[in-house]
Every structure is written in C-alpha cells, then in structure tokens.
Design a protein around this nucleic acid. Structure first.
Lengths: 168, 168
DNA sequence: GACCAAAGGTTGTCAGGTCAACAAACGGGC
DNA sequence: GCCCGTTTGTTGACCTGACAACCTTTGGTC
C-alpha cells in the first residue's frame, strides 16, 4: 500500500503541533524549576495526590493520572520522598502495592507554587485562545487521546475518571 | 493580584493537553526507534536538512527549524555524524559557523523511514480529526506558538519561513 | 495446598537533555 | 588597527527518563 502523504495544510499544522509539544514542556519546566525547584512532572505528581481526599494514591493509580510509566514514577517518588514531600507505605490489603502519600511539607510546597504555575498556563495558553478555541481544543485533545491511549490505560477514562478537580 | 484559577472546562482541557504533550512524543519516539533506530528529534534533523536544496544548513538555522537549543543540536549532530548520516564542515565565509550536511547514507535512511513515520502521524492525528478540526488546530497552534516563542526565534516565522515543504 | 502466570513495584544501566563554562571569530567604535 | 562586546558553536558534568531484569505477592486452577 502506497504512503498517503500529508497535504500542505496538514503538514503546516503538523510542524506547528510538533513545535508546541517541544516548547510547551520546556516552558513549564523552566518556570517551575526556577520558582519552585520542581519539574513539571513532579508538580503534577504532587497535584494529583492533593486532589485525593486522603492525599494518598497507589503507585499504579498515580501513574495513570500522570501519564507516566511505573519505573519513571518510582524514581520520581523516591526523590520527592528524599525531599520530604511524599512518603511511601505498603498497602495493608495488598502487600504488592505501595501507597504514595503527600506530606504536610509537600502540600505546603504545592500551595506555594500553584499560583505561579497557573499564571504561566494562563499566559501561554488560555489568554491567547478565544473561548471557542478552548472548546475546540477540548474536543481535539479528547480525540487525540483516544488514539494515543486507546484503553485509557494512562488517563484512566474507562473507569469514570476525568472528573474536574479543585485545581491543577 | 489574586490568582485567576482555571474554570472547569479550562482545567479539563488543560489536563488533556498535558497528556497529549506527554504521550505524543513518546509514541513517535517508540515507532521511530523500533523501525528506524532514530529519535523523533534525530528524524526531524534529517528531514529539515533534506528540505534544503543543498542538503546543508548552518547549525543555528537547523536549531531554529527543529526548535532545539544549540547544545542539544550539537550533541545530536555529533552522534549522527558518527553514524555517517551527516557531516560537518566549517563555513567558508564565516569561520565561526558550522555547516551540517546530509550525506547520501543519511538521505537514504530518511527515505526508508519516512513512510512508516507518516503512517503513524496519520493514524494518531489526522485520521482521528475532522477536516474542520484540522483547520481549527492549525489556528490554535499558531496562537500558542506566538505565545510560547514570541520572537519566532525557534520557529523562525519572522524571516518569512513557515513554507510548506515537500515532506515531513 | 502447590503451582504458575499475572500484577505491582523497584532497581541498575544507559542514552539523551540541560546548563554553565569555555573558545574562537566577527564587527563596530574610536 | 585595536578592543571589546556579540555571535556561534562545542564540551563536560550532572540529572532525568527509558528499558530490561528482577523480586514479591496475588489469585486462580488442578
């Protein structure tokens, strides 16, 4: 079967999409590293833990919510534990599982750094898009995620997730 | 000034956008590493070189087109040179500059791997979006790039670039 | 109740990226 | 025509992420 190449509009869009996926993460990382000594991914880990009522999630659940592989998460949580932001305990009902828990210090650090983070997200994303574009982007990202992660293994949208949460 | 938090729709969109910027690169990397022993970024370097008539670009120009920092590019080009896909020569008119040049072997490797790459781009992106969504995404990414890279330092849209090219 | 495949995590190793320091060449001002 | 700030690029040290190997526990199945 012969290759279906991209037409001009698709190509231009693709080039810019690649640029965005390259520049957005580094922009977020820079701001957070400078202002909060956190990677964007580390921030995400703390944020997801903070949304759980008990500030505790099993490693595999946390991996889903942060779109991470388990090895990656394991390394990051160990570092966060070294800094006192998280602690790990064995799950009592399933001895294989590990519970990651946000400490007071971790929560405090998250609360401190959230405003600066939200500010840059506004500035770089939502302030430059019209409300219609935000809605469009919502639909587009939903479609893309379905393709990129069909079973919702990472984003967990098969188990009734996607609930809006108190803050990012 | 108090923080302007994200509303529910913005938050949901943001979470998915982050997921896409996390999953898309790893998806591309996996496919290219498996089928072509190339990083997506390495592929991009070869592709950008292939679009120049002389298959040659100055390092700084190449860095712009690939949204990369110069140190990063320098390391990658050295590795590509070790594999025989690229060679580097001093620019004759400006002795500070380095010209990166795509070799025959490099071009051949690129041509071999292009169909597989385009295929996954279609499958994960354009096949799951409607034509209207592609147009919308084009406008959205343009707005985002203006915010993420105002001077167009990376993407070079101040110097009349953005020309559609023969292939990605 | 003993196996045995699968689930859940951790660890080690290696490759790739970032950042800061450095070197060399250009170019404008005087 | 000399200086000095800028541009251009490379290098090395450090850090993070990916991948594979491994270990333990669980939950059938026989």
């Amino acid at each position: 079967m012969s290759t279906r190449w991209l037409d001009a509009e698709e190509l231009a869009t693709w080039v810019r999409l690649v640029a965005v996926t390259e520049l957005l993460p580094s922009t977020l990382d820079q701001q957070l590293r400078r202002d909060a000594s956190l990677t964007h991914f580390e921030y995400l880990v703390l944020a997801m833990l903070s949304e759980d009522p008990g500030h505790t999630l099993q490693m595999s659940a946390l991996a889903q919510r942060t779109n991470a592989t388990l090895p990656r998460l394991s390394h990051v949580v160990r570092r966060l534990e070294d800094r006192g932001f998280v602690d790990r305990t064995r799950n009592s009902t399933d001895a294989r599982a590990t519970n990651a828990h946000l400490t007071e210090a971790g929560l405090a650090h998250l609360v401190d750094s959230a405003p600066g983070h939200v500010e840059i997200v506004r500035e770089k994303i939502f302030d430059v898009l019209t409300p219609e574009q935000v809605t469009q982007l919502g639909a587009i990202t939903t479609a893309l995620l379905d393709a990129l992660d069909p079973e919702g293994r990472m984003t967990g949208h098969t188990i009734g997730s996607h609930r809006p949460s108190s803050k990012e």
